[in-house]
Computed example of a mutant assay.
Amino acid sequence: MQVSRSRTFAAVAALFLMTSPAAVAQQDRACTSVTLDDPPRTMIRCPGGLLIEAEATARLQILAPSSGGPPHAVRLDTKAVLIDLKTARPFQIMTPHAIASVRGTVYAVDVGPGTTAVFVAEGQVQVGRRRGPGAVLLGPGEGVDVSPGAPLAVRRWPQERVSRLLSRFGR
């Protein structure tokens, strides 16, 4: 794993909007961002025990309270992120199709055309539709695909699918 560059940032209401690993803007609380080469991704460490790894071409926005404090959400539009949250505090990922809410866990969210996939490596994640009823609770090794009109079905993901997703984050 090679580190190609490092930055320190500060954060408030919209911590940062990222359209590429280099396009980052923040204010107030410090987050640290490092661009990794193999595979290409950005690792972001924020206050409150939050680690976010985003694929190099992921489009996301990290949100924090306007009063300061650690981030409470990520808005993810494309590609995948891996979240490692070791503290017991609310945190969620919002995609066009789903909302994944957690407390102290490791999980991945992958947004594609018309669908969002959520996989849990550790802990528990509640996943619901962005619009409409229905939610499921995922445990370690489980995942769900969220797309319009399809039922939310919790499945134990095959190792091949898990490996394919996690390899995008060097795991």
Rank of each mutant, 00 (worst) to 15 (best):
R103V: 04
R75V: 10
L60T: 02
V127Q: 05
V81W: 00
V74C: 11
A80Y: 00
V154N: 01
F169H: 02
G139W: 07
P21F: 03
Q2C: 06
L60N: 02
L166P: 00
P71D: 09
Q61G: 08
D84Q: 14
T95L: 09
P65D: 13
D28V: 03
T35A: 14
V12Y: 02
E53G: 00
L137E: 03
M1R: 14
Q126R: 09
G104H: 10
D28P: 02
L51F: 04
W157S: 02
V81L: 15
R131N: 11
A54Q: 01
G170N: 09
A117Y: 05
A54G: 03
L82D: 01
L51V: 15
I83E: 04
T42R: 04
T87D: 14
A54S: 11
G112E: 03
G48S: 10
Q2W: 06
P96L: 09
G134L: 07
G143H: 01
G48Q: 07
V109D: 01
Y107T: 08
R103M: 11
T8G: 13
I93C: 10
G143F: 00
A14R: 09
T57P: 00
S67C: 04
P71L: 05
I62V: 15
T35D: 15
S147T: 15
G143Q: 01
A135H: 12
E122A: 03
S66C: 07
R171T: 04
V24K: 05
V74L: 13
S66E: 15
G48Y: 05
V136M: 04
L63R: 15
V81S: 00
A73F: 13
T87A: 13
G123T: 07
P71M: 05
G68D: 08
Q27H: 12
T95F: 10
Q2A: 14
A73N: 14
D145W: 00
E53I: 00
L60I: 11
P70F: 07
R5W: 11
P158V: 09
T32P: 01
I83D: 05
F119M: 10
G68M: 03
V120M: 09
T35S: 08
G48A: 12
G141C: 12
G48E: 11
P151R: 08
L152C: 11
M18W: 02
S33P: 03
D38L: 09
G132K: 13
V81T: 04
A25N: 10
A64W: 01
P65W: 03
C46H: 01
M94A: 14
S4M: 06
R161D: 13
D110S: 07
A13E: 10
Q124D: 03
S67N: 08
P151Y: 08
V102T: 13
R130D: 06
T57S: 10
P90G: 12
G149W: 13
G112D: 02
R155C: 02
Q61C: 09
D37I: 11
T78S: 13
R45M: 11
Q2E: 15
G139R: 13
P140I: 04
R45T: 15
A58D: 03
D84G: 07
I62E: 01
D110E: 12
R5T: 04
V120K: 04
P140R: 10
V102G: 02
Q126K: 06
Q159P: 07
P96F: 09
G143W: 00
A117D: 10
S167H: 13
R75Y: 06
S147N: 04
R155H: 06
R129G: 09
G139F: 07
S147F: 03
G132N: 11
V74N: 05
